[in-house]
Every structure is written in C-alpha cells, then in structure tokens.
Amino acid sequence: MAVDLLNARILKLSTSLRALPAVLRLATITGAGVASVAVPNAHAQSPEVREYQIKAAFIYNFIKFVDWPRDALPEGSETINICVLRDDPFADALESIKGKTVKSRRVAVRRIEPGRDLETCQVVFIGSSEGKRLPRVIESLQGLNVLTVGEMDRFVELGGIINFFVQNNRVRFEINVNSAERAGLKLSSQLLSLAKVVRQ
C-alpha cells in the first residue's frame, strides 16, 4: 500500500516537472546520458592505500637524489634494496615500484626484522607502528649507510633522515641533514630545496 502511494506520488511529481523528459532526451543526445552507462571505477582506492602509493613514488624519487658511498652501493650491483620493518602495510604499496630501474639498478623490496640484515638495505622505511621502538631502531642503524624514511612525529628529531607528513591534504617531507651526513649520504640540493630542512 505504501509502495503504491509512493509510486503514485512519484508519478505525480514527474507529471509536474513537464520539462524533465525533454531535458533527459537532450541529455542522451548530447552525450550526457553517458551517466546511465558509466561503470564503477575498478581502480578505486581507499585514502590510506592512495597515501602509501604516493609515498612509495616519493621514495622512488628520493633514490635518484641520494648518493650512497661505494661500499654501500657498489658499482655493478644489481639491486637497490628498500627494506620495511616487520609487516608494515607500506610494503604492499612498495610493490608498485618493485622491479623498476633507478640508478641503473632494479628496486627490490624486502621485509626485515629490526637488527637483522640491515647492512643489505639502502633504504629502510620505518612505519608508524614502530613509533615506540624508534630510538632502538635508529640506534641499530648507526654506522650503516642507510637512508631512513619515516612517517611519524619527532622522527627526524630522534635521528631519522627523511620524514613524511601531510599538510593541507598533500604529502610533504622534512630532512635532517645532520643525520644524513652521519649516515655518509649525500643529498642533492634539488631534494633539499623541496624539503623542510632540519639540522640537529
């Protein structure tokens, strides 16, 4: 009964808006009727997945602007290893840059445990899940030529090199140039010009 009533009212409404059928016909003719055949976006992402994919592309670009000592990245080596601590979900986003070539080397993505195999990494991403353990993680990287990248408050103050943050819906990054020097890494002036530079 309620459905019948609703149908009757919708019918009345459509009668009242006499111009509508003509407009809809016009819409179809002009191609605006594409709405009726549009399909859902198959590549839709959640905001967090999208944020990680943007950050993965940033890391890919960072590698172009960082010079490692020869010992850490020997000539003729085939891969640049980006390591992710534990099971941080960022590793999934890094799959999008896995296998790509940068500095004439293939990008490899590895999941590692803190303190293990760090010397094989050129880049270590430390996710926000490691926040409480950050001082210990940073300490375990001392003496290694590793570019540390994080995404948490006080990351660069505690010795990390590059930290992501989001400002006005866009990804920004800050760089602790002293930490980079301590790790024996040379950062290009172009990279520094885009970053919020911290000296500590």
Partner: peptide, 11 residues
C-alpha cells in the same frame, strides 16, 4: 617530486 607534491592525498 614537484608533481608528487601537488597530488591530493585524499582524492
């Protein structure tokens, strides 16, 4: 990098 910095995180 310059182009990445212009992308909205929340599309």
């Amino acid at each position: 990098l310059e182009e990445l910095m212009k992308i909205d995180v929340v599309s």
